[in-house]
Design a protein around this nucleic acid. Structure first.
Length: 426
RNA sequence: GGAGCAGUACUCAAGAGGCUGAAGAGGCGCCCCUGCUAAGGGUGUAGACUGGGAAACUGGUGCGAGGGUUCAAAUCCCUCCUGCUCCGCCA
C-alpha cells in the first residue's frame, strides 16, 4: 500500500510504475482514486463543519442547563437535531468514499526499486549470481522420494489414510535430517545476531487480512472451525503481525528476528497437490527471518539477508543461484525481491528454496507499524526471507549429497545435529 | 470453561454524562545547586490520526475494539478482545 500523497503529488510516477509491472488495467484506478480523494475531502470538510457546529451547540446547551435556562436549551436542542439529521444523511457517503479509496489503494502496486529488471512474468526473471558448481554426477540422481524411500524415510500411504493427499510421515534419519537442517539454520541465524522466536501457529482474521489479500487467504489459509483462527502459512504472518499497530522507538531498531514454525498451506490453484514426493505439500516446517528497520537501511538489510540463505545452503553442500524477480513477477506489496534457488542435479536446473523481499513501507503502512521520530512519526520498512524450508531443503540436500549406492553424505556443518554421523544409509 | 475486577498518551495515573484532548507524575528540554555518581531546586514542553491553510493557525476523529442511547459519552447500555485474582481442567 503506497501513500496516497504520492498519487496526489506525482501520479505519473505511480502510473509509470504500473506500466512497468504490466498491469495497465490498473492505470485508470490512479485517476479514479484522485477523483474520489477530492470528493471525499470536500465531503469531509462539509461534514466536519457540521460536526463542529453540533459540538459548539451542544456545549452551549450544557452551559444553559447549568445556568438553569431550560427553555433556551430546548430550542437549541431542536437545532442540533436538524444538524444531526444532515450529518446522518451524508455520513454513509463519507464511509463509502473511504472504503472505495482504500480498496483501490490496496491494489495499486508498491513502487518498485529502480534496480528491478522490467519483465512480464517469471520467465523474465534474471539470474544474478551462481554460488557453487552445478555438478551433474556420472550416475543418475533418483527422484527425491525414491532416495528417501530407499532410506525408509517416508510414508505417504499412511499419511494419506490419516490426513489425506499432501501429507507425509518422515521417519528415521530422514526425519532427523530435516530437523537437523532446521536447527542448523536456526543456530546460524542466532550467530548473526538474530533473535530466535517461536511464534503462535494460529492467528486471527484481522491479522490475516493485514498480511495478505482475500484471494491469497482463500488459496492458502486453513481456518479452524468455529473459531476466529487460521493456521499460519508462514511464520512471517505471526511475526509481522506481532508489530501490528505498534509504535517502535528508534533505539529498538533494527529488529532482527528468526522464527521457527510449521507452515500450513491449502495450495489451491494452478499447481495443486499432484506429486508423489514432498515438493508441494500441505504442511512443512520453516525457519524464517524478518527485519524491521529504518527506511534508509532496508536495502542494506535486503542484501545481507539473501546472502545468509546462500551461505547456509553452501554449507550444506548445495549449489545455489539467486534469481531477481522482474517487475511483472513481483507481488504488489514488494519493492524488490529475489529467489534463492537450489541446483537439482536430477532435473539439471535450479528450483526455488527461498525468497527474500523488501516491502519498503507498504506492509508497515497497511499494518500501522511506525517509528517514533523526533519530528513526527513515520512507517518502518519491513523485510522477510526464508532461512530454510524443510521439505524443499531436504530435496535439494538429498539430490546434491546422495551417493551412487544410495547413501547420503552429511556435511560437517550438519554432523553435530546428526549425532556425529558423516553418512547415512551405509 | 465459570466468577469477580480492570484496560485512559512513551510509561504510571486522575476522571463516574456537558466546565476534559484529557489533572498529576515520570520522561524529555533549558537553568541553578551539589560534587565521587546519584540525587536536590526552578522553569519549559510535548503528546495519536486526519481535513483546510504558504504559515500563524483552525476544524474533525480519537480514552482496548465495534455497535447503541443522548442535543452531548472516557463516563450509561450491549457484544467482543486483552490482562489480573479465585475456581475447574491439563501437557
Amino acid at each position: 500500500m503506497i501513500d496516497i500523497n504520492l498519487i496526489r503529488n506525482n501520479k505519473e510516477l505511480v502510473k509509470e510504475n504500473i506500466k512497468k509491472k504490466f498491469q495497465d488495467e490498473k492505470l485508470e484506478l490512479v485517476d479514479k482514486v484522485l477523483e474520489l480523494d477530492i470528493e471525499y475531502r470536500n465531503l469531509k470538510t462539509t461534514l466536519d463543519d457540521l460536526r463542529s457546529r453540533r459540538n459548539k451547540n451542544s456545549d452551549e446547551i450544557g452551559a444553559l442547563m447549568r445556568e438553569g435556562k431550560k427553555a433556551e436549551a430546548l430550542i437549541k436542542k431542536d437545532g442540533v437535531m436538524i444538524i444531526n439529521e444532515e450529518i446522518k444523511a451524508r455520513e454513509a457517503d463519507e464511509i463509502k468514499y473511504q472504503e472505495q479509496i482504500k480498496e483501490i489503494m490496496m491494489v495499486i502496486p508498491n513502487i518498485i526499486d529502480e534496480s528491478v529488471p522490467v519483465g512480464k512474468d517469471d520467465s523474465e526473471n534474471v539470474e544474478i549470481e551462481k554460488f557453487g558448481e552445478p555438478i551433474v554426477p556420472e550416475y543418475e540422481i533418483p527422484y527425491h522420494a525414491d532416495i528417501i524411500n530407499a532410506l525408509k524415510g517416508l510414508d505417504k500411504d499412511a499419511a494419506g489414510r490419516t490426513s489425506g493427499n499432501g501429507f507425509y510421515y518422515l521417519m528415521g534419519d530422514i526425519a532427523r535430517l530435516s530437523t537437523a537442517m532446521l536447527n542448523y539454520a536456526r543456530d546460524y541465524m542466532i550467530d548473526q545476531g538474530f533473535i530466535y522466536c517461536i511464534p503462535p501457529f494460529m492467528i486471527r482474521s484481522d491479522v490475516v487480512n493485514g498480511v495478505m489479500s482475500f484471494a491469497e487467504m482463500d488459496a492458502m489459509m486453513y481456518k479452524i472451525e468455529n473459531e476466529d483462527l487460521y493456521l499460519i502459512g508462514t511464520s512471517e504472518h505471526s511475526m509481522i503481525g506481532k508489530f501490528k499497530g505498534q509504535m517502535i522507538k528508534k533505539d529498538e531498531l533494527p529488529i532482527t528476528m528468526t522464527s521457527y514454525s510449521p507452515c500450513f498451506r491449502k495450495e489451491v490453484g494452478a499447481h495443486g497437490i499432484e506429486e508423489r514426493g514432498i515438493y508441494r505439500v500441505h504442511q512443512f516446517e520453516k525457519q524464517e527471518m524478518i527485519v524491521i528497520c529504518e527506511p534508509s537501511q532496508s536495502m542494506e538489510w535486503y542484501n545481507k539477508m539473501w546472502k545468509y540463505t546462500v551461505e547456509i545452503f553452501r554449507n550444506l553442500n548445495i549449489p545455489v543461484r539467486t534469481l531477481e524477480c522482474c517487475s511483472g513477477d513481483l507481488a504488489d506489496l514488494k519493492v524488490k525481491s529475489c529467489d534463492v534457488e537450489a541446483w537439482s542435479p536430477r532435473q539439471k536446473k535450479y528450483f526455488e528454496v527461498g525468497s527474500c523481499s523488501t516491502l519498503g513501507d507498504a506492509q508497515a503502512r497497511r499494518l500501522g507499524i511506525r517509528i517514533k521520530g523526533e519530528n513526527g512519526n513515520y512507517y518502518a520498512h519491513t523485510l522477510n526471507n526464508t532461512v530454510l524450508a524443510s521439505t524443499r531443503a531436504l530435496i535439494a540436500f538429498l539430490e546434491n549429497n546422495v551417493n551412487e549406492d544410495g547413501s547420503v553424505n552429511i556435511p560437517v556443518a550438519l554432523q553435530p545435529y546428526m549425532g556425529g554421523k558423516t553418512v547415512i544409509g551405509k
